[in-house]
Simulated scan of single mutants.
Amino acid sequence: MIDPDGYTYCHEHLHIDLSPQKGDLDCRLDQYALIKSEMDALVERGVYNIVEVTNSFMGRNPQFIESLISDTGINVLLSTGYYIEGFFPPEIYTKSARAISQEMIREIVVGVEGSSLKASVIGEVGSSENAFTEMEQKVFEAAAMAHYETGRPISTHQSMSTMGRQQIELLQRFGVDMERVTVGHCDLKDNLDDILWLLDQGCYVQFDTIGKNSYYPDSRRIEMLKALSERGRLNQVMLSMDITRRSHLQQNGGLGFCYLVDSFVPQLLAHGISPAEVDTMLKHNPYTVFQ
């Protein structure tokens, strides 16, 4: 569970391999020494928790995570579930939502096979860009079932900040507790109205692609966070970077995991976000959601 004394990155990948689907070795994040170095640096800065949302068929490696925990002291929450269309194993299409949910429940209650770790987050379960396929909706139904049985939170993936409303409407139909849902990738387009609607439903939202300026500039993320601050809505917002590629690591020329606390947070403070609001987004909200 969350260490309440430190900051939390709410949506990260410490070991992920989407290279088979994307045909790009850069999408295999597995360089242990470099990632260990960055986790050491995070702990030094007071970031004690990582919500690791790599799930089955995304290249999850629990042994890799066990070593990071042992070697750095970082606290890692593992996830269970399935990602989005195009990244599902073939056999999932013949399974019922109940059967998929039982897989999730087993990883939460019994543990992730081949390790001593248990999953404590249902995620990242997602939808495609401007589409929410039948199979993706079945995974959401399974996630709702697993949530009912375990009480664990659900963390979602929006492709390019689309379909968040549809995700929440579906989970609402399944009766999921909105205070135990966090919607991912809300910071990839100008969508303040969508974000306010999500907040009004009672769920949390993630500004979790910080530093990915090629998708959407951090300056606009700061503008949106400032707008939410002015409305008193940051008590449902969390922050992260969603590092997924070798090229994202600092020693490979990327921004690295520390960019969020070393660069982005000072920019927030310079734009009038208060230190208390930063603590709310990086400490208190994650503890509430993921405890």
Rank of each mutant, 00 (worst) to 15 (best):
K226G: 14
Q206T: 07
L192N: 02
L77P: 05
Y215G: 10
A270P: 10
D242T: 06
V176A: 13
E44H: 10
Y215M: 15
I210G: 00
K95Y: 07
M241Y: 09
R45G: 08
F207L: 06
G23D: 07
S128L: 11
D40L: 15
T162P: 01
I65E: 03
I243K: 00
K118E: 05
D5C: 12
L188K: 03
G73L: 10
L25N: 15
P275S: 04
E230V: 15
V53I: 03
L14I: 14
L78P: 09
T156L: 09
V176D: 01
A143V: 06
M135P: 13
D193F: 11
G232W: 03
G6Y: 02
C203W: 02
L29C: 04
L196V: 15
E149V: 10
Q267K: 13
E124H: 08
I195D: 02
N235H: 12
Q137C: 11
A142I: 03
L225E: 05
Y148C: 12
S37N: 10
L198D: 01
Y9D: 00
V265G: 00
L225T: 02
P62G: 04
P153H: 01
L42Q: 01
G86D: 08
Y7K: 00
R220S: 10
M281V: 02
D24W: 09
V176T: 01
S247C: 14
L268I: 13
Q167M: 08
Q236D: 06
R173V: 14
D218N: 15
D190F: 10
D26M: 09
G111K: 03
E107D: 15
M104D: 01
F174C: 09
S161C: 06
F207T: 01
D30K: 05
Y93S: 15
S116M: 11
I50S: 03
A99N: 09
G184S: 07
Y287R: 09
A99G: 07
Q158V: 11
R28C: 15
E129L: 14
P89F: 07
S56E: 14
E38F: 11
E277Q: 13
M104A: 03
Y93L: 14
G114I: 09
D190G: 02
D71F: 05
Q158A: 13
I122T: 00
T94A: 15
T150W: 12
I108M: 07
Q137V: 11
A146E: 04
L228A: 00
K283L: 14
D71A: 00
D30Y: 03
I2R: 03
T8E: 06
S274G: 05
L249H: 06
F174I: 08
P286W: 04
A270H: 14
E134K: 12
A227D: 08
I154Q: 05
L171Q: 01
E38N: 06
L199A: 08
F57M: 14
H11V: 08
S19T: 05
H13C: 11
G59A: 02
L225C: 06
C27D: 15
Q102W: 09
M163E: 00
V121C: 06
G114K: 07
